[in-house]
């Protein structure tokens, strides 16, 4: 059983260190236990190489997204969480609209948090797999640059995949 660690004054336990993460988009700051933040390989590398100050600036990630990332890291830093609990918690974190998910996947990639990258990209995959192609193009800002002939050729090449597809 896990006892409440914050009240524990065990002499052998090292003092809890915290880090402050700061979103450079809206200057929001988050104070996080170090072991929580170190799940990000990017932050770990910064801390290990001593180039992290008291406040770690996080470029290109908004406070809203950073909060989700920290929620994920906190969940996964809790040793008493069962696999089932984590699955449920992950599902809650990625239950967002597609644009939030895209920001989140970029954040997970930048901060190098493998598990978060995995669940977020899986959620994006699930959300787009049955969408009409024009919608997918809009979401990802893709321009259809095929000529009608080229498009027909791509379809013909993979006949089995396009069967019954408009």
């Amino acid at each position: 059983m896990a006892s409440a660690p914050e009240n524990e004054k065990n002499a052998s336990a090292p003092e809890k260190k915290t880090l402050t993460l700061k979103s450079m988009i809206n200057n929001e700051e988050f104070v996080v236990d170090e072991h929580v933040a170190l799940q990000s390989v990017t932050i770990k590398n910064m801390v290990d190489s001593d180039c992290a100050g008291d406040v770690i600036p996080v470029p290109t990630i908004s406070g809203e997204i950073l909060a989700l990332v920290i929620e994920y890291c906190k969940n996964h830093a809790n040793p008493s969480a069962s696999e089932d609990d984590l699955k449920k918690a992950d599902a809650g974190i990625v239950a967002k609209d597609i644009y939030t998910l895209i920001d989140l996947v970029l954040a997970a990639n930048f901060l190098d948090i493998k598990g978060l990258l995995e669940v977020t990209s899986q959620k994006i995959a699930d959300s787009i797999k049955d969408l009409p192609h024009q919608d997918v193009r809009e979401i990802f800002g893709v321009e259809n640059d095929y000529t009608p002939e080229e498009e027909a050729a791509v379809r013909a090449e993979h006949d089995w995949a396009f069967e019954g597809f408009p």
Partner: peptide
């Protein structure tokens, strides 16, 4: 992301753009 889509749907994404 594409590698996490079922293969049939993944192959269909090739029609989005070059």
């Amino acid at each position: 992301i594409i590698s996490q889509i079922p293969l049939k749907e993944a192959v269909r994404t090739s029609i989005l753009s070059t």
